[in-house]
Nucleic acid binder design. Structure first.
Lengths: 190, 190
DNA sequence: GGAAGGACTTACCAAATGGTAAAAAGCAAA
DNA sequence: TTTGCTTTTTACCATTTGGTAAGTCCTTCC
């Protein structure tokens, strides 16, 4: 599990074995089951997750009291509520396990320690999260202006692996439609 | 117009008068009229805009050939297609003037020169654009899961100034509905 | 002032989506 | 296997939204 994190980081920058050892001392591991809550809306995000395996979902509760899936994040990606995590302010979103998952967890304190211990680590992490922010916007832009059926077909193209691994309920919520509508769309496509 | 840029930057970091002079030598100014195209989808974004006055819109053309407004950006904010601008790749979005506007323009080359001339300038700009990315996501998250009427009312709360300064056509597109639907919604609210 | 064009609204009907309810299918524990 | 639970589908009807068309209002230009 640590290995997958190191692989991930090394795709962005070379990291010495000494630094890998330091990183290993400043993380911990966690296994979660589908439905587990990793961050509750309204609380401060105190952890940054690297998903070693599985899929997380970022959600919020809308005015009608329904859970809305905003993003799926899968293995080999970082996941937190960045603004909350970096600035110690309450998050407007929750993080839940959309499937069983194994995680590498950094607390805020651990990450700050790593920033002092490994000079390039801050730049590295900020670069990675910056790119992730751009990809998130890009992804949502792609869906904009498409009707429900087109959105689902885009979803199948853009996130085919996720489409096979999370409940249709979550997918419908992510696409902004009811599970019944999604079921209808799936029938019409066949 | 340069003054508004310097004011903006100084809200994020102190900047000496000498550096202000350097910045002044590495920008140029532009006036645009509503509807003017500042970046065409498919081309590389070669410029970063600071909006001194007015409102720009980021758009793309969907599968049906309609223009979809993805974001409005108003005065006192930076605007470009970040991924395209930073990595020299074609943009998937266009930038147009949603109202008459006055801009401070950085070309890529000018910005890179400033990065070498002013040591802290890269960090400053990256910090600012990073925050802007987070706000963009936050904003779109807020709309997620709301129906058309609720989205419009959120828009009035979240971007009241923009609601008064751009055509309803653009607002409808931004909210993912037709101008007719928006008109209906506005009548029902009264 | 009058003409022309754009922006916004209204009306009408068609199409898409939501909500309630129930059935069917899949899955896991006993 | 059976039971119970969750997920997914289906059906039905109400509601919302889209698309076409036309009308009103307002500004700009001649």
């Amino acid at each position: 599990m640590l290995a997958s994190l190191i692989n991930f980081l090394r795709r962005h920058r070379n990291i010495s074995d000494e630094d890998v050892a330091v990183i290993g001392q400043h993380i911990h591991l966690r296994t979660v089951k589908e439905g587990d809550v990793l961050l509750q809306e309204g609380k401060v995000a105190r952890e940054l997750f690297f998903i070693s395996n599985g899929i997380l979902k970022i959600t919020h509760v809308n005015d009608k009291g329904n859970e809305v899936v905003l993003f799926f994040v899968k293995e080999d990606h970082l996941c937190t509520i960045l603004n909350s995590f970096e600035n110690n302010v309450p998050a407007h979103e929750s993080i839940l396990a959309a499937s069983d998952a194994t995680l590498v967890v950094f607390t805020r304190e651990q990450l700050l320690q790593l920033y002092t211990l490994i000079p390039y680590f801050k730049d590295l992490m900020e670069g990675i999260t910056r790119e992730a922010l751009m990809r998130k916007i890009q992804l949502r832009n792609t869906y904009a202006g498409a009707d429900a059926s087109a959105r689902y077909q885009l979803f199948l193209e853009l996130q085919p692996d996720i489409s096979l691994r999370v409940p249709l309920n979550d997918i419908a919520s992510y696409l902004g439609i009811t599970p019944q509508s999604l079921s209808r769309i799936r029938r019409n496509i066949r």
